Simulated scan of single mutants.
Amino acid sequence: MTITFLGTGTSQGVPVIACDCQVCASADPKDKRLRSSVMVEIDGKVIVVDSGPDFRQQLLRANVKRLDALLFTHEHKDHTAGMDDIRAFNYRQKAPVDVYATERVQAALKREFAYIFHEYKYPGIPELNLHTIVNEPFEVEGIPVVPIAVLHYKLPVLGFRFGGFTYITDAKTISDAEKEKIKGSDVLVINALQREEHISHFTLAEGIAFAQELGAKQTWFTHISHRLGKHADVALELPTNVRLAYDGLKLEM
């Protein structure tokens, strides 16, 4: 299994232009974060979790040539806005892309991308096969996936476990029952937005505590705001098995 972090940033607290804070002005490429998304490659199949506004740029940057499935954690635009860009894979693969989402997220996609789901198809629109996720294990191209239910303030969000890899973003609360699904992970990815308390995201301290509680061999933080600080500085504060992810990071499992 190969894990590629297409993006590790967030729209939360990030100025669009003219920011001269230490992170935004940093020359370190690890401080240049596009919106959070991850690519999982298993047995020749390519699965991506979330397609935010930077999706096209991320795919080009990572030289992604194939996309078998797109999974959505939730309906916020920083995780869904780039779905239109699957059309390049329709053209290349001569087939629809499988898209997996809960019924609530599907309803949001149908509102935001009404032209894709219209009865009368405009030529060249993205082609997809829509699959419904519930909080039960399912398969993508024969690959087992375990959904993990978390709360983003009061909004239900799904994380996903692929074998020994667990990916969770936009989490603030996780029940004991859902934590059981995470235990035994070799690699855990969890959000760590900033240092200050936040209503719907783990802070750095909460992310570290969660990592220590779950005891994965490695924990990587994603969905990182510029408010957290520079990558090199934050890295010095973390336990030995807890690290900050960065755009372009690849993990082999």
Rank of each mutant, 00 (worst) to 15 (best):
G44S: 10
L71A: 11
D78S: 14
V49I: 14
L59F: 10
H79M: 08
V64S: 03
V49N: 06
S37M: 11
I42D: 08
D84V: 14
V48M: 07
D84E: 13
A88V: 13
G52F: 06
D68S: 04
R66F: 08
S37I: 01
D54V: 05
N63P: 00
S36V: 07
H74G: 14
R56V: 10
A69E: 03
D50L: 07
S37Y: 03
V49H: 06
S51F: 10
K65F: 09
H76L: 13
V38H: 06
H79K: 12
M83K: 07
Q57E: 10
H79S: 10
N63G: 12
R61C: 07
A62L: 10
L59C: 12
R87Q: 12
P53I: 10
L60N: 14
F89K: 04
V48C: 07
V38C: 12
V48Q: 03
Q57T: 11
F55K: 01
E75D: 13
E75W: 07
R87H: 12
A69G: 09
D84F: 14
P53Y: 05
L60M: 13
D43T: 09
V64H: 04
I47R: 06
V48S: 02
V38Y: 06
N63Y: 01
D68L: 04
H74Q: 15
V48R: 02
F55Q: 02
D43F: 08
F72M: 09
H74P: 00
R56M: 13
L70W: 02
F89C: 05
